[in-house]
Nucleic acid binder design. Structure first.
Lengths: 345, 345
DNA sequence: CCGGACATCCAAACCGCTTTGGATTTCACC
DNA sequence: GGTGAAATCCAAAGCGGTTTGGATGTCCGG
């Protein structure tokens, strides 16, 4: 077994033409049931599997989806990116597609897309982490390479296919919850704000504040890669300042953990002295579930987003020329242990 | 530009044979310098790039490396896996290889490898997360598919190529440090112990204890997926028990963060009342650097391991029949803020 | 018994590249 | 001037599939 039979050998063994064997295996109708049975049996027995390169060459479809990640973006999106990929990967393998990932130097990103197109490495790509001045979609259109954006490209919402969560709304709701609890000095620890999602989150935050007559305080807003130390250091600094915040709205569980650490180090109690709401991407290694989750959060499974993005893209590929579609997911607002009424002054 | 010229058209335009053009572009010697120049210029101008499927079919090399991840293993190794992948990916693209990742249902793992081999999807694979009763290497040998193991397969160290850190030694050293600081009740929060790396870490821990005349206490050892809550819950439980540990040795930063949270919740101070040493895979989104790192740790960059694993594999592929090679990395022991002398009883 | 409609199957072209096995030209050297 | 080596270049044969355009055989109604 697994000796590496090819179509020619298989068909010889069966006394059939390659045509017939190929058709039998690929489910074409012009083959008798009996023949089809014989063919599949023999194929099974000899462990035949079509060479994918040959098939791809012949069909002109590469049966692969590309993900290109510049090193820097990659570092920044680390765990979230992986979870998304995992979701997409499930969809791909379900449909017989391969996932190819290119880790490239930042200044070679365009090149990477060009190569995918010209060398026919993939039938489509996923665009990760769109920024405010995104340009990749233009390149991809020029290259005629189908793509789906994870997130939204400002100004190109209508002409591109995308999947995104409602970032603005999620942070608006979270902010309102904190306001309802009596918090008025609320800090925002956001992701890098040249990223579209971060910009939207800030907007949701600020709008909610303004709607209730509060002025957003720049001194309470920070934006950076969402690491643990980022959360800790900034929270520490703010908590030690005068007129410290009583609540934090944080863009990532990882940073939120850092905030919690800072709170502890200041001798305060999370959920009592200081409230924290974080966005929770439902990362599998950072579960925030349980009967009462540790963190109050806005939750939206990025893995699910990955699955859906892949489905969208595969659909686009199989029906070229169809209208762009998009999926707008709402985050759940889940009450956990990290929020409570604002402490009396 | 990027109109999709192929070799035939390009050579026609140049009044040369496909042979010559192909050779010129691929750097073969039997082409005059002048001709080569003309060819590259025209190729550049027309935006020619060889179709990768065709090239692969013709050369018989798929120029791709496969990584298959069963969903469950994947979930468990999440961030570490990604960091490894990132490292490997850098090496691949530097050498013109593609990285293809298959996310498969657990019971289809074997299938995935079989397909990679029979359909010639990849020239080699990386084996992730070997367990104590590992069997994948046997399958891969049978399939004649080159592979490199990230970690070691117990009993097959000589006959396989692998890259691993010295888990036993790292945990032995960490344990000794704690003993030197006067700690005698040391807890071990380990990864799942059917994984080879976790088993080695435990061995290092226990041997160090025994060597100094201490009996490992089963009540202080836990093993699980290395999540944050795992660290917190178990630390909490132990700290609240009678005769609590004064130090924790933890297999992952993520869990260590959980431990620190538990310590804080118990009203204790990390590095004073309770010491923590963690293994630090140098994940980019969980930096533990700074002048004095937060956590005392044994550090070994898993991204670097990924790069090296890829190099090993590519070398194996280009020199078939070479002896298996392996790389044994030593972790650094780095003193941070989370350790201090054992508190007086 | 004949012609056409179906049902089956096949030979050969094709996908776009690499590579083998020459063919042709050039040139130094005897 | 003849000759063999070196330098260039080319036609054609793969690589292993899919797909087009028939060929052959069978069955049915008229």
């Amino acid at each position: 077994m697994s000796k590496g039979v090819n179509l020619k050998e298989l068909s010889k063994k069966l006394n059939l033409s390659q045509t017939t064997v190929s058709r039998a295996l690929n489910g074409y109708p012009e083959v008798s049931a009996e023949t089809r049975r014989r063919v599949s049996e023999m194929a099974e027995e000899l462990g035949y599997a079509p060479n994918s390169q040959a098939r791809r060459l012949a069909t002109g479809r590469s049966m692969a989806i590309g993900h290109v990640i510049p090193r820097s973006i990659h570092e920044m999106m680390n765990p979230i990116f992986l979870e998304f990929i995992a979701g997409a990967g499930e969809t791909y393998s379900k449909h017989g597609y391969d996932m190819i990932i290119s880790v490239v130097e930042d200044d070679h990103e365009e090149d990477a897309y060009r190569q995918i197109a010209s060398r026919k490495k993939a039938d489509g790509v996923i665009v990760h982490g769109p920024t405010s001045d995104e340009r990749r979609h233009k390149l991809l259109k020029k290259l005629n390479l189908p793509f789906v954006v994870h997130g939204r490209i400002p100004g190109a919402e209508e002409e591109t296919s995308w999947i995104d969560m409602n970032n603005r709304r999620a942070f608006e709701r979270a902010t309102n919850l904190l306001l309802d609890l009596g918090h008025t000095r609320i800090a925002l620890l956001n992701g890098l704000e040249h990223m579209d999602f971060a910009k939207r989150r800030r907007r949701g935050f600020e709008e909610a504040l303004r709607a209730r007559g509060h002025k957003p305080d720049q001194a309470l807003m920070r934006s950076s890669d969402m690491t643990e130390p980022f959360g800790c250091e900034n929270a520490m600094e703010m908590l030690k300042g005068d007129n410290p915040p009583t609540a934090f709205l944080v863009s990532s569980m990882i940073s939120a953990i850092g905030v919690a650490r800072a709170v502890g180090q200041c001798g305060l109690k999370t959920g009592k002295d200081v409230s924290i709401i974080t966005h929770d991407d439902a990362l599998s290694f950072l579960p925030n579930s349980g009967e009462i989750p540790i963190f109050t959060c806005t939750r939206s499974s990025v893995r699910f987003a990955g699955q859906k993005a892949a489905e969208l893209l595969l659909a686009m590929i199989s029906e070229p020329g169809s209208k762009p579609t998009s999926l707008h997911l709402d985050a759940e607002l889940i009450i956990g242990q990290s929020t409570g009424p604002a402490p009396a002054r």
